[in-house]
Amino acid sequence: MTPRESARFRLRRTGDHLRVSTDSPHPWQLRIGGPDGALHLSPAGTHEAELPCPA
């Protein structure tokens, strides 16, 4: 990715889990449940993660 490119993220929910996939080589974070929800941090190179996402 060049500095002018943006990362693409794909989110898929199955039951009480959220699967996140990305093409980003950089660290990323995702907050689930609004401003006070759980914050999930992923280190550089994480291209896929499965996170708990209660209904």
Rank of each mutant, 00 (worst) to 15 (best):
A38Q: 15
D36I: 02
P3V: 10
W28I: 08
P52K: 11
L11H: 01
P52V: 08
H47G: 15
P35Q: 09
L39M: 14
A49T: 09
L41I: 05
S24L: 06
A49H: 05
G37M: 06
E50K: 14
G45V: 07
L39C: 09
H26M: 11
F9Q: 03
T46S: 13
R19N: 06
R12A: 12
P35Y: 07
E48M: 08
L11V: 05
A38Y: 01
V20C: 04
A49Q: 15
E50F: 04
P43M: 04
P54G: 07
I32Q: 02
E5M: 14
P43K: 14
A7E: 00
S6K: 13
C53F: 06
P27R: 15
M1Y: 11
G15V: 08
E5K: 12
L41K: 14
R19V: 13
I32H: 07
A49E: 07
T2S: 14
I32K: 00
R8H: 12
P52M: 10
L30W: 03
R13Q: 11
P54F: 07
I32V: 15
P43L: 11
S6P: 00
D36F: 09
F9E: 04
E50A: 13
H40M: 03
E50G: 08
Q29W: 10
H26Y: 13
L51D: 01
W28S: 03
S6W: 05
L11K: 02
G45C: 07
V20H: 05
G34E: 03
C53V: 00
L51N: 02
S24C: 10
E48S: 14
P3Y: 04
R10Y: 02
I32G: 01
R31T: 12
P25T: 07
G34Y: 02
A7V: 00
R10H: 09
A7F: 02
G37H: 03
S24A: 14
T14A: 13
D36Q: 14
R4N: 13
S24I: 01
G37R: 06
W28M: 08
W28T: 05
P52Y: 08
P3E: 08
R13I: 03
H17Y: 09
E48D: 09
T14G: 10
R13M: 08
C53A: 15
A44L: 06
H26A: 15
V20F: 01
P35H: 08
T14Q: 12
T22I: 06
F9W: 06
M1I: 12
L18A: 08
R4E: 14
P3C: 12
L41T: 11
